[in-house]
């Protein structure tokens, strides 16, 4: 008997309480900055593609929903020939972002990805690549790494000595 009254009281209390439901889409939810939403590919500060097609995101992906193919430009700079994410399989775990050594692949705050057809969830590189650097605005992988790919010559990177002279006989 008492429990019945308690139950009715709780229901009554809730009817006058401030409501939790957000009236989406009129009212937009506030998301945390590290929210894991739609995946994008970013560019480095020079405006070049950040992705070096290392395949680590694809390897880390537990849903196996990332497929890409590496290729090179005339300077030997590696970039993805195609980059495909099947968002109908993606679980937005963010492992790809964690695996990415160049900060190219990033998860954004966009979660509004409703579609009527599953094939519309297949994003190719042109859908993924944005025109900015997203998070980590300063980072440029090829300035740091040791390979010369047109961005700089061997020995011109950050933390690099000029190339050694192998003909020198000095000790």
């Amino acid at each position: 008997m008492l429990s019945l009254v308690k139950g009715i009281w709780t229901v009554f209390k809730h009817s006058i309480r401030k409501r939790e439901t957000v009236l989406y889409p009129e009212e937009k939810p506030s998301l945390h900055p590290r929210w894991r939403g739609r995946i994008i590919l970013s560019r480095d500060p020079d405006g070049e593609e950040r992705c070096v097609a290392c395949y680590l995101c694809a390897a880390a992906c537990p849903a196996d929903c990332i497929a890409l193919q590496a290729t090179q430009d005339e300077h030997g700079r590696r970039y993805p020939e195609f980059f495909r994410i099947n968002f109908s399989r993606c679980i937005f775990c963010g492992f790809c972002e964690e695996a990415c050594p160049t900060y190219a692949i990033q998860l954004t705050n966009d979660f509004e990805m409703g579609e009527y057809h599953r094939h519309n969830f297949v994003y190719e590189k042109e859908h993924l690549l944005i025109n900015g650097s997203g998070k980590h605005p300063e980072y440029n992988f090829y300035r740091v790494s040791g390979v010369s790919v047109g961005a700089k010559d061997s020995g011109e990177g950050e933390n690099e000595e000029p190339p050694v002279d192998i003909h020198s006989l000095m000790p």
Binding site: Y55, A58, A59, C61, A63, D64, C65, I66, A67, L68, R84, I85, N86, S88, R89, R118, H119, F121, V122, E124
Partner: peptide, 16 residues
Amino acid sequence: HRYSGRTAMPANVTVH
């Protein structure tokens, strides 16, 4: 066992 891209490789043709 680490083979990647299983669900994305054929996705441009069919998502099934």
